[in-house]
Simulated scan of single mutants.
Amino acid sequence: MAKQHVARARLPLMNIVRMKGVPILQQLEIEECLLRTSSDNWCIINDGTDKPNIVMGISGKPAELVEIKPVLEDKIPIIRRFTGGGTVIVDHGTIFVSFICNKDVVDVQPYPRPIMSWSSLIYSQVFQGIADFSLRENDYVFGLRKFGGNAQSITKNRWIHHTSFLWDFETHNMSYLKLPQRAPEYRLARDHLDFICPMKDYISRSDFISKAIDAAGSHFSVKSTEFEVIKPPSNVKFTPTSRLLTKEELEAACKTSML
């Protein structure tokens, strides 16, 4: 018991921030702030967001990824986030988990694939004995069906790996997304509803969140922190780069898609 206590004391500290229903744009701003202005390690968990939003990677092109006309008609916000990765539609059925770490505290090469593999070890613990979990290309899957999409950003000394977990989803919302031109091989040209599956068929929301925190605790010494206290240092100027696309941008993209 004493040896276990000493080993845990040597683990790097990680702040756990639990949120519920925080708007996804606000969450992205918090995460980018922590990535760029903090020197601590963080795990951000947001249990659902307030309303449907489409979130694209930093280099995403709306005309290629989104059915823009119905998105405009239904007034679905589109956000371009500060990290890479693909396009997702998120809502109250999405659970978000993000790890923000210093490069020197995690025993992993600071490149996309090693970080992705490291993250899969965390979630292998979460889903142990529950389902046929694996990492396929850049996705978390049960069998051949995706339930978690990942994105990353790597800076000089730090990195973020964040995931949108489909605990549940509205079938209609998937019609806003196009089949991406660069789809993973294992997708096999399946449409969205044949490609994804809800996590609720395997685990409850509360159990998933508890198990995710426990899994983080096997790699870090975890400490709960209130998200209200997160803000950049007073001597640091921070401007978030995730943003809503304007109606004018989407209308221009709509015209492009019709050419």
Rank of each mutant, 00 (worst) to 15 (best):
E73L: 14
T49M: 03
G86Q: 03
T49P: 04
V66F: 09
I54Y: 03
T87D: 09
I58Q: 10
G57D: 10
P70R: 00
D91P: 07
N46M: 15
L65G: 05
N53E: 14
G60D: 06
G60N: 06
N53D: 12
G93E: 07
I45L: 14
I95G: 05
G60R: 02
G93Q: 07
K69A: 15
E67I: 00
N53Y: 14
G84K: 04
D91Y: 07
G84C: 05
P52C: 09
H92E: 15
K69I: 04
I45K: 08
D74I: 00
M56G: 08
G84Q: 03
D74L: 04
F82A: 02
P70K: 00
N53I: 09
E64F: 05
I45F: 13
P70W: 00
I76V: 13
D47R: 14
K69R: 13
G86I: 13
P62I: 11
V55L: 07
T49S: 07
G84D: 00
T87K: 06
K75F: 09
H92N: 14
D47V: 09
I54L: 12
I78P: 00
H92G: 12
K51Y: 09
I78C: 07
I44T: 01
I76P: 05
P77C: 11
E67W: 02
E67M: 07
I44S: 05
D47P: 04
G85K: 01
R80M: 15
K51Q: 13
T49L: 02
I78A: 00
L65I: 07
V90M: 08
G48R: 10
V88Q: 04
L72G: 10
V66R: 01
E67Y: 03
N46E: 15
R81P: 06
R80G: 08
G93T: 06
I89S: 04
P62Q: 12
G93N: 06
G48A: 06
I76D: 08
I54Q: 05
G86P: 05
L72R: 06
T49E: 03
N46V: 09
E73R: 12
L72H: 07
N53F: 13
I45S: 06
V90Y: 06
E67H: 11
V55F: 07
D47L: 11
N53G: 07
E64L: 13
K69G: 01
G84S: 03
S59K: 14
G57V: 14
G86T: 13
A63G: 15
L65Y: 08
L72S: 09
G86D: 03
P52D: 09
K75E: 13
E67V: 01
T49Q: 05
E73G: 02
M56P: 07
H92M: 12
S59M: 13
P52N: 12
D91A: 13
I78L: 15
D50M: 05
I95M: 08
I76L: 11
T49D: 04
G57Y: 05
G86L: 03
L72C: 08
I54W: 02
R81C: 14
F82S: 02
K69L: 11
G48S: 08
P77Q: 14
T94K: 12
T83K: 01
T83M: 03
E64G: 05
A63K: 13
I54K: 05
I68R: 00
R80Y: 12
M56I: 15
E67F: 03
N46C: 15
N53K: 12
P77N: 14
K69P: 00
I68K: 02
G48M: 08
K61W: 04
I58W: 12
P62T: 10
